[in-house]
C-alpha cells in the first residue's frame, strides 16, 4: 500500500515539495541578515507557488494555472530587478546589506 503510493506520482508528491520549498524560503526571509539571501528566499517562495499552480492545473485539466505561472515568472523578474536596485541603494547609503543594521529611513 505504502510502496504503491510512493510509486504512483500524484498530487500529494508535488504539494509536499512545494510546502518544503515554501518553508525554506520563509526561513530565509525570517532569519537571514543578508538582504541578498532574503531575496533568494523570496524567489524560493515564488517557485513553490508556481509548483502549486502547475500541479492543480495539471490534475484539473485547465489552463488557468499554467497562464498564472507564466505571469508569476514575469513579475518575479520585475521584482528581482527593483529589489536589487533598492539593495544597491541601501549599500550606498549604509555601507552594508545587513538588514538588522538598516534602522533609519533618512541619512
Amino acid at each position: 500500500m505504502l510502496t504503491e503510493q510512493l510509486l504512483s506520482i500524484g498530487l500529494n508528491h508535488f504539494l509536499t515539495i512545494s510546502a518544503i520549498l515554501f518553508g525554506l524560503g520563509m526561513f530565509a526571509v525570517m532569519t537571514r541578515k543578508n538582504a541578498i539571501v532574503i531575496l533568494m528566499g523570496v524567489e524560493l517562495i515564488l517557485n513553490a507557488a508556481n509548483i502549486n499552480f502547475l500541479t492543480f492545473s495539471k490534475y484539473n485539466g485547465g489552463m488557468e494555472g499554467v497562464m498564472f505561472a507564466l505571469f508569476v515568472i514575469v513579475l518575479a523578474a520585475a521584482e528581482a530587478a527593483v529589489a536589487l536596485a533598492i539593495v544597491i541603494n541601501i549599500f550606498k547609503t549604509f555601507k552594508t546589506v545587513d538588514v538588522s543594521r538598516v534602522d533609519t529611513m533618512k541619512e
Binding site: A19, I20, F22, G23, L24, M26, F27, M30, T31, R32, K33, N34, I36, V37, D98, S100
Partner: peptide, 20 residues
C-alpha cells in the same frame, strides 16, 4: 551572512511545513 534567532526560526519553519 549571519543568522538571526536560529532556533525560533527553525521551529516556526517546521510548524509551517507541518501545518501545510
Amino acid at each position: 551572512a549571519d543568522v538571526l534567532h536560529i532556533v525560533p526560526g527553525v521551529l516556526l519553519t517546521l510548524v509551517l511545513i507541518g501545518g501545510l
